[in-house]
Design a protein around this nucleic acid. Sequence first.
RNA 1: GCGCCCGUAGCUCAGUUGGAUAGAGCGUUUGGCUACGAACCAAAAGGUCGCACGUUCGAGUCGUGCCGGGCGCACCA
Length: 622
Amino acid sequence: MASQGIDVPIQIEQPKEPAFGELALPVAFQLARQLKKPPRTIAQELVDGVGGIAGIAALEIAGNGYINVRLDRASYASSLAGESSQRAELPAKVVVEHTNINPNKAAHIGHLRNAILGDTFVRMLRAGGHSVEVQNYIDNTGVQVADVVAGFHFLEKKTLDEVAGLARQPRFDYLCWDLYARISSMYPDDPQAKAWRTETLHAIEGDDGVLAEMGHLVSSAIVACHLRTMARLGISYDVLPRESEILHLKFWASAFEQLKERKAIYFENEGKNAGCWVMPAEAFRDTSSGDDDSKVIVRSNGTVTYVGKDIAYQMWKFGLLGKDFFYRKLDGFPGVWVTTGKPQDEAAPSFGGASRVYNVIDSRQSYLQDVVVAGLRALHFDEAAKNSVHFSYEMVALSPRTCVELGIELSAEDKQRPYVEVSGRKGLGVKADDLLDKLIETALREVTSRHEEAPEAERRGVAIQIATGALRYFMLKFTRNTVIAFDLQEALSFEGETGPYVQYAAVRARSILRKTGETRQPAIPPETFAKVLADEGLWQFLLAASRADFAVMKALEAGEPSHAARYAFQLAQAFSVFYHDYPVIAEPDAVRKHVLIWLTRYFSSRLEWTLNVLGIPVPLYM
RNA sequence: GCGCCCGUAGCUCAGUUGGAUAGAGCGUUUGGCUACGAACCAAAAGGUCGCACGUUCGAGUCGUGCCGGGCGCACCA
């Protein structure tokens, strides 16, 4: 067989993505082995047999036996004219759940990474035509809320009214940040403080008395603070499922029955877990090494652990629990719904019931995420288990240099480390709002130095957009499994590989288009394209811009928002070169000028589309 | 002890699933503003891809073993 021609299917016969452009394929080497022929012979056969792809490409042999696909530039450019990035909406619903609001303190840089990564991925999913619902889990009954409440009540002797007064302050979360750190530092050597916490926790669990009421007050006030902080970055959520409702509506009871019935968990009679309901270790981990630590799901006192609640919640996300929350609109946040324990008058949309779920939680939680998925599998919800994705990312730590700048004292040991972990308990970290304020202030100085004449409010608006772009890009430029050693100077930079660099390209392109005065994309005949695009620089620029859709979808497939961000940067770089090398307005040749305007407009629309997916705004000027 | 992640230029990071001469940004040195705004561009210097075997036409990428660093492994969430 295969005595003449090639009968092995190869991808270049029908390229899925001609926009991938002029690329080299090592097919000759791959096929040479299968067909037991020299690579150069294979290459020649390919070129002879397959040349001419979809009428706009041709194959040619490179010097080393590789095969290049060459696009016909004029046809390719003409084919881009009517292109749009509209995609048919896919019927299946995707839920993206963040777990980043611990309603006990201000949001910090760790929360920012969670929110920006998750929000960008949501935008990518939507660009891909998926119907997406965004949730944020509110852990409003745990010890962390209890810590803050105990701090107000026992340590500061505040009454409910006094705390309510404080909660009306815009930066109430800052106050709790300090209080939380203060009371946490007391626990190691103050038994009384521990007793305060225990008492508060009981009160919150029983949902009774002043302490419980203070718990509601504190957690909802801090949730509002978080939502305001994230809104500054263009991030919002559709629904906030609260742990309190998971408890009160007895979500766990339903899950518990199913788990028992399917024998996914069992009652332990002996050993250290005696009296608990546990999930056997082999369900969620490889136990061949002899390590068989089972996971406690229900404690010996009859209460359910976090993982148990999370299994019930995960079932609900897939519509497999047989129960639902009640919902009400959240005051002050249009479009945001929150769960409640009682039926409401308002007609709420239907939440949950997804076919796929992404849980955006940092990689330290991977063990627990595995247990949750194992729970689904043990219940024979194999589809749901397969479609439960832990969208994990590494933590944000602080660079030692930044700790010094912030006046944080480091132990001799910490100074040796490459980075220092953020710790809410120690009050060690950079608050999200502080960072944003600092970015805005820096951006405003830059804007003012360039546009003194502009009104202050307008300059401020531009500065906010620049700050948003800088922060979002900074959090996205790292791949998910890279630990970010947060460096303040680096984050505050507006030069080089940064959000503002990309925004600047968009702004300059707009400026050219504004000055040329043309509002529509000029029609260019193929012969003109062929002539002008013979210029290698212009051709490469066009090719780069035409890859926007492909690059974003590729990033979506890889689950890496950083790839999309990096593409935007590379495209901006290509424009900077174009901008420098090809003066558009001053171009004397009218025909060539038309093509340059066409290119600028095409670039502008592709970059702005990409920036929109990344949640990075384009300022009026910079 | 077990599991997961990381080790690439002085620093911070990419590397499109095994392909051509390993790339960006920052920093350093040098050159470019009468503006489509220099938040930019051009050029130079800078690499034993932690180490060693292995797999194959081909390894930064896959396998095994070491070395170094980080994070998990609760009746906390």
